[in-house]
């Protein structure tokens, strides 16, 4: 009661109003703090997109006031500025494709391609993507040469056969070793071989006794 007597009602209302506004401001401030908090585990690895070596004039690159619009004549020499040159499609990629909220790009870059790109081969191939794919279009190259180091070098018509004919998962990136016995891929050929009747004669394996791997239809008899 004594307090009420010391603070006039009008001042009390003002005080309450001030307290409410202060609380709101404090809440806003705390909320903004929460928005700034993030980073968590990767906090020690620095900002998402380090700008500390950039020129002081933001207008060199940015246009407007939203930070999202870059100048039309914006150019950034990633190699010269960072020591990490970008080749192929990476040279044309948007900055935020790599420098984004997912985490520090240095962490992912050190993991090679799989740091940023999905391993569509699901761990079944090596992690040296660039030895089979171009960096520009991701088109594979040199498959026949690489296949030459396996137990089944691609010779004859096999060298001009689509991968999917033997590796059924090839179209979706799953390359598992295909069984090397001829019938695994040539079952239909075997069933159609009626002159002579291969199945009837029990000729269901060791096809290479008579057929050259260059083309199935050319049988050459062992003299």
């Amino acid at each position: 009661m004594a307090a009420n007597q010391r603070i006039p009602p009008r001042r009390r209302s003002s005080l309450l109003l001030g307290l409410a506004v202060s609380s709101l401001l404090l809440a806003c401030a705390l909320d903004r703090q929460a928005a700034l908090e993030p980073h968590r585990w990767w906090a020690g690895l620095g900002p998402v997109l380090p700008h500390d070596t950039f020129p002081a004039d933001c207008g060199l690159c940015h246009l407007g006031d939203d930070w999202w619009t870059l100048r039309e004549d914006f150019r950034f020499d990633h190699g010269a500025e960072t020591g990490v040159p970008l080749h192929g499609a990476h040279a044309a990629a948007g900055c935020l494709s790599c420098h984004n909220d997912r985490g520090p790009v240095a962490v992912f870059a050190s993991q090679g391609c799989a740091g940023c790109h999905e391993d569509v081969h699901r761990g079944s191939l090596e992690n040296t993507c660039e030895s089979c794919h171009t960096e520009q279009t991701w088109q594979p190259f040199g498959q026949v040469e690489r296949h030459g180091r396996t137990r089944f070098p691609l010779i004859g018509v096999h060298a001009v056969t689509a991968c999917r004919r033997c590796h059924t998962g090839a179209e979706v990136g799953v390359f598992l070793p295909a069984p090397a016995d001829c019938a695994a891929c040539h079952q239909a050929d075997l069933a159609q071989a009626l002159n002579p009747n291969h199945l009837g004669l029990g000729w269901v394996d060791n096809c290479d006794r008579c057929h050259l791997p260059t083309s199935w239809n050319q049988a050459e008899l062992d003299q």
Partner: peptide, 10 residues
């Protein structure tokens, strides 16, 4: 100096 919680420019 950059501090924790500041993802882009200080």
């Amino acid at each position: 100096e950059w501090r924790e919680g500041q993802p882009l420019l200080s």
